[in-house]
Each structure stands twice: as structure tokens, then as C-alpha cells.
Design a protein around this nucleic acid. Structure first.
Lengths: 124, 124
DNA sequence: GTTTGACTTAGAGTGCGCTCTAAGTTCTAG
DNA sequence: CTAGAACTTAGAGCGCACTCTAAGTCAAAC
């Protein structure tokens, strides 16, 4: 059986996602992976395409400051199947509102910083 | 001498800035205040208008994820007087670039989240 | 002048999100 | 078959930014 094996070792997955192997294992232990990661040939992890897609999305949740605990909630809903679609939608919509608030706050702060920068430029 | 005393106790300053009294003392100990805070009548802190203005700006730096150590660098430059204006400008400009990068990353992540939200909405 | 509440300090504790370590196992190249 | 690189686990450690505690001092109201 030599179809192209598209699955990745942990270090390849790390390179692909921009996370460290430590972080990938940590996320798994923290219950943030949707299903168990395959163990190919032996005990070594094999990351599938869909694992990588999920890690990418998870990274986007994290980069918008969703706490690990909230990501875990989302994952637990996802594990329950399509019956939890509404709950997942609501979780994401609530998170969306916090992201918009963060963007607004940062944008306001940026304006103040820009103002100060303008002041220093004039003062020269 | 009964001009209006515009200075504030630490708890008033806390209320005004939205920080806790603990955090105000912590910031001071961490070297983040421009000058020493006045001690009125005794040992109790008295926050002046300019102290409050500074805390507000410092809070904007923090809300754009400037680390405490970087804020301290800025403060140390400010304490050196106007000779450090160029250096302060450069520090703020560098920070500005990181803020823009953060905004860009968050905006990208938001797009992915919105995409997922749209998917869940359709799926109902 | 005494009570009550706000203030003071130094230092310990907390929560988060990694990040690293140690000791051992497995894969791969030669 | 062997050497060395990459992997495994459980658990400890770390850096950041607060946040709280304890033991005491001070101030405003009665």
C-alpha cells in the first residue's frame, strides 16, 4: 500500500502549524484535539490533514485571546456531533463580540499612541 | 489655602482609571510612574491630574500588549528629559508596528471565525 | 480620645499558557 | 546489528502580570 501518505510526524506538524512539538502535545493533553491523534506504526503520533486544519483554526481562536478553557468547551460540543451545532454557533458568536470589542479597544489605543507620536515628531 | 484640591487618594485614582489599588501600587513599584507620587499629609499617596493622565496612557500601552518591561524603558527615557525625545519616538513607532501587526492578525482570525459562523448558520 | 475604615509595606500566592526535563522507547540509515 | 536521531510519558519549572495577605499606621466621625 503506497498511496501517498499525507499524514505528518509531530515535528512536521509543528513546522506546518508554527507551533512547537511541546505545544502540540500540551494541546492534546489539555483536551483541545477533536479526536484522538492516530498512532502510526507504533506509539508515534500521525497528524492527518483534518488534524492540521483543526490546529490552524484553534490557533486562530487562541490568537484572538480565546482562553484554553473556552476552546475546550467548543471541542466538547463538537465531539457531541451535529446536535450541538446551535451551541457551537452561540459560543462563536459570543467570542466574535469579544473580538470586536478587543479590536475597538486596540484601535482606540492606537489612536492615542499615534497622537503621541505626532507630538514627538512636531517637537523635533 | 483652600483652592480646590484636585488630587486623589489611591482608591479614587483606582476608580478613575479602572485599575485596582493593588495594580496602581504594583505599577509604581515596577517603576512605571514618571515621577514619585506625592504623599499628602502623611504617607498616603495623592494622585495628581498628570499622574492620572499618565496612568491612562500607560493603560493604553498595556491594552495594546506592550510588556511592562517596555513601558519601563519608555518611562526611563522620559525621566531623562527632552534629550530622549527621539528615542521615545522610535520606541513608540516600533510599538505602533507591532500593534498594526496584531490588528492584522486578529482581523484575519476574525474572518475565519466569521466563515465558521456562516457555516453553522447555513447548517441549521 | 476611641472606633472604624482607608491606607501603608514587604512579600507570598495565583492563574495562564506554555516550555522544559528526565528517563526511556522506537525508527532509520549505514 | 548498531548508532543516533526522533519520538514517548509524566511531571516539574518558568515568565508574566497581577492579586492577595499580614501586620501595622493613619485619619475622619462621633
Amino acid at each position: 500500500m503506497t498511496l501517498v501518505d499525507t499524514s505528518l510526524s509531530i515535528s512536521q506538524a509543528a513546522e506546518r502549524t508554527g507551533l512547537s512539538t511541546h505545544t502540540l502535545r500540551y494541546y492534546e493533553r489539555a483536551g483541545l484535539m477533536l479526536g484522538g491523534i492516530d498512532r502510526a506504526s507504533s506509539t508515534h503520533r500521525r497528524y492527518s490533514d483534518s488534524d492540521i486544519v483543526w490546529v490552524d483554526f484553534l490557533t486562530k481562536l487562541r490568537s484572538t485571546a480565546m482562553p484554553i478553557s473556552k476552546v475546550r468547551e467548543y471541542v466538547e460540543l463538537a465531539r457531541q456531533g451535529s446536535g450541538s451545532n446551535q451551541a457551537r454557533l452561540e459560543l462563536l458568536e459570543a467570542h466574535r463580540r469579544t473580538v470586536l470589542a478587543q479590536l475597538a479597544e486596540m484601535t482606540q489605543s492606537l489612536a492615542a499612541i499615534d497622537h503621541k507620536i505626532a507630538f514627538y515628531r512636531k517637537g523635533n
